[in-house]
Amino acid sequence: MMNWFAHPVTRLVFLGFLAGIIITALHLATRQVIQLNQQQYRVQQLRELIDPAEDIRHVNENLYITSQSDLITGFIFSASTEQGYNGVIRAWIAIDLDNQVRGVRVYAHDETPGIGDKIDITVSPWITTFNEKTLHQYDWRTRKSGGDFDHITGATITSRALIHTVKSGLMLAENEIPTWRELARANHE
């Protein structure tokens, strides 16, 4: 009786198959809600950077468009650097149409707790130092090196990495804004 089931390997394969079915079933049942959670979480993070009245529209993983009553007000794009103290730092940079910074938020980093993690808005407001800055009117270096930006005490490397990231982000945006506008128009239609 049930000879095919006697071999241990058959049993293991059967068990694996069963596990696969259960996981797939749960995945399919929860997929949509999880995707929605992910988008909500993302948008909720980005909302902090803009006016409550504005809308955020998703273009792709790294680019969002902000608008108010159907007029584009700016863009939010992601930037990252490996020049921090430890691992990759990822941030959202919100700009208006004149390429002026509206706000920067770090959303992933592994900097030292208590020192480098002051780039995180929940730990310290330092990151707001970038608000309303523009690419050409400021010297994008730390004050210590003769620039216009304060660095975080004890975390010069982290601060420099952030300043550099925002600067390169703005340089990129300067070239890309026309393309992004096209994308926004296409996205809207």
């Binding site: 049993r11 293991l12 068990l15 694996g16 596990a19 259960i22 996981i23 749960l26 995945h27 929860t30 809600v33 999880i34 959670n37 992910q38 909500q40 979480y41």
Partner: peptide, 22 residues
């Protein structure tokens, strides 16, 4: 087989956590 059972439940827990407490 034991590792497979454990891994299955961990995966299920991981999915449920994303579902309820993202």
């Amino acid at each position: 087989a034991q590792i497979m059972v454990i891994a299955t439940f961990v995966t299920l827990a991981d999915i449920l956590l994303q579902y309820w407490f993202f």
